[in-house]
Design a protein around this nucleic acid. Structure first.
Lengths: 114, 114
DNA sequence: GCTAATATGTAGGAGTGCGAGGTATAGCTC
DNA sequence: GAGCTATACCTCGCACTCCTACATATTAGC
């Protein structure tokens, strides 16, 4: 039974921090946002989402306040802390460095001599 | 204690399959190759490398033969099976789809309206 | 004989994603 | 007001992978 593995380990944190950077959002909206922007490529199940949010909050990367949604429901709004912003920059840079490196490797035979 | 996390989960398999596609190589050479081509961004510790090779072999994606290196040492040369080639194509496509999606998300605020 | 590089391997812990389950409210239809 | 869907939160436990540390054997150089 192979794992579905929609997202590689560690990527979810990066994406959540990124969405939180744009302004306070609650978890459910984060998942919807990721799915919309990625055109359904990124789909975050709740069993992945909420544990991730709690971990990020425990690490001090996110801070949360209970507020009311426009529709009148209670929701936990997350915002990026100063520490979280630094972490986001670091992880985003790592991601870019890594994807470039993997890209180099995957194009090994296609490009031929480089 | 944060994990060093050089490579996201699942990426290592993709890279190994890719190197094996170029021709029969032994494990030690795969790790060196990845490090060289990626300009030291990708560094595969032996504790990650060999278990990954065994798993890929058990899944029938790689096949191995003991041969001698140019330097005279015994080494296990891995080559891509037909099944492994198909898997490589699938994973490479998934990787590209994913990186594009993540790229879209990471550029959310920079580009503003797009 | 000692060290370094080559080449392979295992064991155990740590961390994360996900399926499956549970709770509660708002709004809609009937 | 009964039932349904969507919203919004949560937890448990399994599965999987990565990595540190350790162990082994050979070749080359000093």
């Amino acid at each position: 039974m192979t794992v579905k593995s929609d997202l590689p380990q560690g990527t979810l944190d990066l994406l959540i921090l990124k969405v939180a950077e744009l302004g306070p959002v609650h978890g459910y909206a984060i998942a919807q946002r990721l799915q919309q922007v990625s055109r359904d490529v990124v789909q975050v199940p709740q069993g992945s989402l909420y544990p991730a949010l709690h971990r990020l909050e425990n690490r001090g990367l996110l801070a949360a306040d209970w507020k009311e949604t426009e529709t009148g429901r209670d929701a936990k709004f997350y915002r990026l802390t100063r520490k979280g912003r630094a972490q986001l920059e670091t992880e985003a840079a790592s991601w870019q460095r890594l994807t470039e490196a993997v890209g180099l490797i995957l194009r090994l035979s296609e490009g031929g001599a480089e």
